[in-house]
Design a protein around this nucleic acid. Structure first.
Lengths: 116, 116
DNA sequence: TCTTTAATTAACCGATGCGTTAAATATAGC
DNA sequence: GCTATATTTAACGCATCGGTTAATTAAAGA
């Protein structure tokens, strides 16, 4: 059901082989055969992983001679990061609460035996 | 095959219903019935979405009385963001190139008719 | 204890995901 | 045009996903 863009990106990232391919592409463009080499899976399998990544906008591909080289397109990750960033306050909030709690502690010298 | 932690998180985020559930939880804890309400899917379906989210560490759950309330645990997103951040330089690099390009432009007053 | 309410589990179904091998396509070079 | 190389497409198998309905478990309350 991954019909929206964000779902497509997350689904693409959910596979470790595809993430490894992306990692490899940070060192430069590569052909299908080169990308397949470190994995113990067939070429057709890699070919389809690349199609998934391309569809998610995470790579671009161009055919030069008889090779199809893949290139990382990390901008697609921006969208996903942006979505996640909207949750940043919710993992930072605990620090705020702790801060608040500490401030309260320093204001009043231990109210009771309430050690929640 | 989502056996590693990161895969589990990304797989959990790949479903729009689950992302919507997370969004809802930013407004406060909620029971299964409350979470199911805005969606046109059955309670068992929501129940399983919650299990997926819990397994990914994106929510925690506690049983109080006969309700099981879910609570957002956004810290799990940190790991995913951290992974993505390692790619930031690869989508920022274009800005660097642009910057470089602009600097070059300002150094020399319009080399030719190259209005790229 | 019996009933009601909240949620989960079980059993099923169709679609999709990820792998395979075999066949097809595309390009380079003789 | 034939051959070798690079990649994709086709056809298949099996596991998982996301949904359903029906049955089960858990707790509250009369």
């Amino acid at each position: 059901m991954a019909t929206d863009r964000l779902s497509t990106i997350f689904a693409a990232l959910a596979d470790p082989t595809r993430r490894a391919i992306l990692a490899r592409l940070t060192t430069g463009d590569a052909t299908v055969t080169e990308l397949a080499e470190p994995f113990s899976i067939s070429l057709p399998a890699v070919s389809r992983h690349l199609k998934v990544l391309e569809h998610a906008g995470l790579i671009t591909r161009n055919r030069s001679a008889r090779w199809r080289t893949s290139r990382l397109r990390a901008e697609a990750l921006r969208e996903a990061v942006a979505w996640m960033e909207t949750y940043r306050e919710f993992w930072d909030v605990r620090l705020d609460l702790l801060d608040d709690h500490l401030r309260r502690l320093m204001a009043a010298p231990t109210p009771e035996g309430t050690t929640t």
